[in-house]
Design a protein around this nucleic acid. Structure first.
Lengths: 191, 191
DNA sequence: TACAATATATGATAAAGATCATATTTAGAA
DNA sequence: TTCTAAATATGATCTTTATCATATATTGTA
């Protein structure tokens, strides 16, 4: 009985993490299984001991990321102060986020996921739902916003990330991000 | 001297139109040159008499669409009434738009364009700039909005389109679109 | 109507990359 | 230390598709 189950599970998670980072920043079609495996010090062949194919890895990596997301953590905590909002805005709408540090799939894969299989789209939709729920929960404590206003707010935040990533000029990006931080802050009762 | 220049130009435009429709709805990597040509009753081989390669077709089709966009028309007209806003919101934030009728690349290609070459990104950035300018021009007449607020508004609108396309449930889509129409309408001085 | 130049179509090539089949390595247990 | 089953690596295959090379079709003009 070589290798402990723990070891395999750890390897699996390394692959998921690697895949998530690369898929979100480059998109499904621009990343090879080779690259994903190399990125976590493994090789192509090992892949198929863990996943059936590339498409399922994509879906699994989305689920994996959602399960580790800070957004869901926030939801569980009793939100007791406004630091959550500040963290959200400063983290999500930041140049660091745009450049790929802890990317959120909602903004990064908004177009990419459209052409994926139903499972992948479902994973994306669940993450989207989670984000809305988390912000709605916050808004309930601190604002008079109804859920429609939160839907629009979420679209703005995700849109800002998606658009920022298409732009080359950092000044333009910062202006966009700053505008959206400002608007979101106001809408959510101040930071 | 067979074929008039006009004929070649018309063929070129047919290809551009076909490419734009297919690229925007499916993304660069999920459309083959074959499909683009078949979609306008031509075949693969004819393609290279008009364009050097697939990447340049993508860029050209973005420019082509931008040049025909209603957004730029709006900018040129003296905006004399509020029908422009109504048309924008009802057209852009509509299920018809989401489903691919006259797709706008800003929402449809937000992620896709990130991995394209600099020329394609520039074409996208120009279209984005055009949209902002058009809405800013409108806002100047009808609201007290500053340009930062318009940047956030545009992000919301584009984000709403991008997210809607990822979702399968029409009810959810309509709710999102309706929320954003509502918010945008208020922000821009009522419809 | 026949020609010429260009547009279009067809067949060939070649590269990339997902997946499969097989070989090798690893580490825990006897 | 040796053995074994699972994990990992390597090599081979096969499909897809962009692009190239060549052949055919078209149409305005003489």
């Amino acid at each position: 009985m070589p290798y402990t189950k723990k070891h395999k599970e750890q390897t699996r998670q390394k692959i998921l993490q690697s895949a998530f980072q690369l898929f979100t920043t480059k998109g499904f079609d621009h990343i090879t299984i080779n690259e994903i495996m190399k990125n976590c010090q493994l090789t192509r062949g090992a892949f198929y001991a863990h996943f059936t194919n590339k498409a399922s890895l994509y879906t699994e990596s989305l689920k994996y990321a959602a399960s580790k997301s800070k957004l869901s953590e926030f939801k569980e905590n009793d939100i007791s102060d406004k630091t959550w909002l500040k963290q959200l805005l400063d983290g999500y709408l930041s140049i660091n986020h745009i450049k790929g540090v802890q990317p959120c799939p909602l903004g990064f894969l908004a177009t990419d996921v459209v052409t994926r299989d139903p499972e992948a789209k479902l994973a994306y939709a669940n993450a989207y739902d989670g984000m809305n729920k988390a912000i709605m929960a916050y808004a309930k404590s601190y604002t008079e916003c109804n859920s429609d206003e939160i839907l629009a707010l979420t679209a703005m935040i995700i849109g800002a990330v998606a658009i920022s990533r298409t732009l080359d000029d950092n000044k333009t990006i910062n202006q966009l991000l700053s505008s959206c931080r400002q608007e979101a802050g106001i809408k959510l009762g101040g930071i």
